[in-house]
Amino acid sequence: MDAVLLLLADSRLPAGGHAHSGGLETAAATGVVHDLATLTAFLRGRLATAGLVTAGLAAAACAHAREPAGNAPPGGAAPRARTPDGWERLDAEADARTPSPAQRRASRAQGRALLRVARGLWPGFVLDLPAGAAGGPHHPIVLGAAVAAAGGVPVRAAQIAAYGAVTVPASAAIRLLGLDPLGVYRVLAGLAARVDAVAAEAAASVRAGGLPAASAPALDVFAELHDRAGTRLFES
């Protein structure tokens, strides 16, 4: 992977990820995750659901951003006109896959933060989202566009999204549960092949004209419980 893409995958990227737990804070508070074994199961389930969905959205956004806007691409293939409502369409597809209002807010908050970073990295980085996309763009959509701006292909966008789907809650677990960081990273290393497989599945689905929609009922419940919790250390 190109180093510029590693920047986008890095948890130290100043795009607000450190303050999100991906449902882990509530899972920890309710005892669902309390050790490495339950964390492993949590991460596998999150990867197969939210991870697959965000990977698909990121891949679709990357593919959309890479489409030439009217100009014939090098190689002489017929130009594919980028649909003017493409970003709006992707925004609606992300909404339709995110029934939890708290998760929609968290996704847009992280999207705003990543947009700020992308504009800092690539002057002129703009997403054609309508003002109606209240609260800013969804995170995986900005991520896909940023990967395209960095010269990356859709499967790389999917990979970074799927990777974030497990590293964000894993990092929160280290901070909330005091789990041994070496143990948590052993878990993440054990999931690496699955991250790649989920990214490949998402990218293949997008190439075939689809977009994954796997749901995680427990994460939906956790997201809304978290929003109502009196004590919380993470934004989501």
Partner: peptide, 21 residues
């Protein structure tokens, strides 16, 4: 109010995005 994910110094120094927001 900004929540900092257990890392108050990160939120004001290393990753200020939530505060800027």
């Amino acid at each position: 109010a900004v929540r900092t994910g257990c890392c108050p110094h990160t939120a004001i120094r290393d990753d200020i995005s939530a505060n800027l927001d």
